[in-house]
Lab assay of single mutants.
Amino acid sequence: LVRYRTISKIPQITLNFVDLKGDPFLASPTSDREIIAPKIKERTHNVTEKVTQVLSLGADVLPEYKLQAPRIHRWTILHYSPFKAVWDWLILLLVIYTAVFTPYSAAFLLKETEEGPPATECGYACQPLAVVDLIVDIMFIVDILINFRTTYVNANEEVVSHPGRIAVHYFKGWFLIDMVAAIPFDLLIFGSGSEELIGLLKTARLLRLVRVARKLDRYSEYGAAVLFLLMCTFALIAHWLACIWYAIGNMEQPHMDSRIGWLHNLGDQIGKPYNSSGLGGPSIKDKYVTALYFTFSSLTSVGFGNVSPNTNSEKIFSICVMLIGSLMYASIFGNVSAIIQRLYSGTARYHTQMLRVREFIRFHQIPNPLRQRLEEYFQHAWSYTNGIDMNAVLKGFPECLQADICLHLNRSLLQHCKPFRGATKGCLRALAMKFKTTHAPPGDTLVHAGDLLTALYFISRGSIEILRGDVVVAILGKNDIFGEPLNLYARPGKSNGDVRALTYCDLHKIHR
């Protein structure tokens, strides 16, 4: 019993810090008490220290592992850092350059016999395009090294910054494609005289377009951006097909006994025919423009016929181009109408809503002055909100995010209106959640004399007048207030005048 009563005193000691020596009952000389009392004092002292730490809000209350900052290894790049964003855009520009100039170089340097010394005699450094290609190869190699040090988000939505895990993730992902696209074939085969082989191998750079397509997928929600990307894709495919079309004609031209190829026909049409040795002929500019003209006309199913396939190889390629053109029509131009419709969806919704308003007016036989006010209010409210119901949009977000959005939407009023000066951010967040926005066209009466005042109004834009009878008592403008002081009276009061809008007004109100 003594032991039980001794232990039962522990909660009292913990909360009230009572010393055991003052209790005459606990001072009985028993061996059990002498053993338990020192333990009680020690526990009391420890609990006292913990309570003191909690009340003082000291940093040592938290466990040590929670006080440590997340460790980022040296030379690790955050995937959302500004440097990584700028670097990704730079790589994107280099990939676009590669997609345009690599097929052009591979096709127009394929057994090209233009006048001038061969590239091997001039030297590697004197070729501007080769120098640019070398810079692109170096940048792609540097990009691989950067990807080995860039964080990523795993399946659990955690940012991984450990170098080993980053390397394994990159090896399992895009490393092989990036490595093949970054191989400097110019340096590996330079001086061997195989410019045709170098041009063909350099087309491996186009593998990076797969990554670019995935990154550009984030802009699919913007109709104008999608339309622009589709047109660029169409032009890029036409450019690639033009390079292939020229390569076919250029390879067949020296081996044909009869002059029936499209390059021969082009030379005869523009007065620059090929001679018996295969030299001469149109310039590279004429060849490229004509090839691009043929691919565009074939892809769009126009086909004027002034550039036509004559050999079997050219006919087979033309059939493939027609098939590609039909697929592009289905996948690209078939979506253009939907994209344009999405661009004008706001206008369509406006006309639909206006039609419903006019049908309501016609069905209920609203008189002319009231009908005009109804239409003007709808037009003004639509121009202010673009038909978007803010309350319906915010309803799907958590309250903390709703408060931040409301604070942002009402920031101008909260910053410049005098009653809100000096208020804490928590108070402003709470008030912003209570605001209701209303609009009024010129001549609209917001409050009639004798109406119950259940709200306090803040003028965000425009001006109003307060009338008693036919006498203008006051004219209020931006950041002015009218209405009933909230919670100042037990019952809502009545208006002693009319409140009429002089201009288009936007008002925020808080109800009782």
Rank of each mutant, 00 (worst) to 15 (best):
W87V: 01
L216N: 04
T295C: 13
A204M: 07
V159R: 03
T290P: 01
T102V: 07
C406I: 05
H448E: 07
H162S: 13
A403M: 05
A235N: 01
R71I: 14
E195S: 14
R371H: 04
V447G: 03
R421D: 07
T445E: 07
C406D: 01
A291D: 01
M231L: 05
S192M: 08
L109E: 01
G426T: 04
P398W: 03
H408V: 03
G249C: 01
N391S: 08
I141W: 14
Y329E: 15
N310M: 01
D286C: 01
H439S: 06
H416M: 08
E158M: 09
V212K: 03
E115D: 05
L134E: 01
F171W: 04
A99S: 03
L263I: 05
G396W: 11
W174L: 05
W89Q: 01
V100H: 01
Y293N: 01
F171P: 01
H439V: 13
V86L: 15
D178P: 01
A449Y: 13
M256Y: 04
N410I: 04
I198D: 02
V210A: 09
I141M: 05
D143K: 01
A107V: 04
N306H: 01
T76M: 08
V132R: 01
W245G: 01
L92D: 01
S301Q: 10
L374Q: 01
D286T: 01
A181P: 03
Q415V: 08
C122G: 01
F171M: 14
H351F: 05
G305P: 06
V289S: 01
M251T: 04
L431I: 09
Y288T: 01
Y97W: 05
I405T: 04
M139K: 01
A182D: 04
C406M: 08
G261D: 03
S331F: 11
Y288L: 01
L241T: 04
L93D: 01
F296R: 01
K425W: 01
L187M: 14
S258L: 09
L323S: 03
N410M: 06
K287Q: 01
L413C: 07
I72D: 14
A167E: 01
L90Y: 03
G199W: 01
Q353C: 03
D268F: 09
L227C: 04
K215R: 14
E114W: 01
V289Q: 01
E221T: 06
H439D: 01
A392E: 07
L413Y: 01
N275M: 04
K418Y: 06
V132K: 01
L343D: 12
T347I: 04
V289C: 01
H380R: 12
S313C: 13
I332S: 03
F420I: 03
C122N: 01
Y65L: 07
Q68G: 13
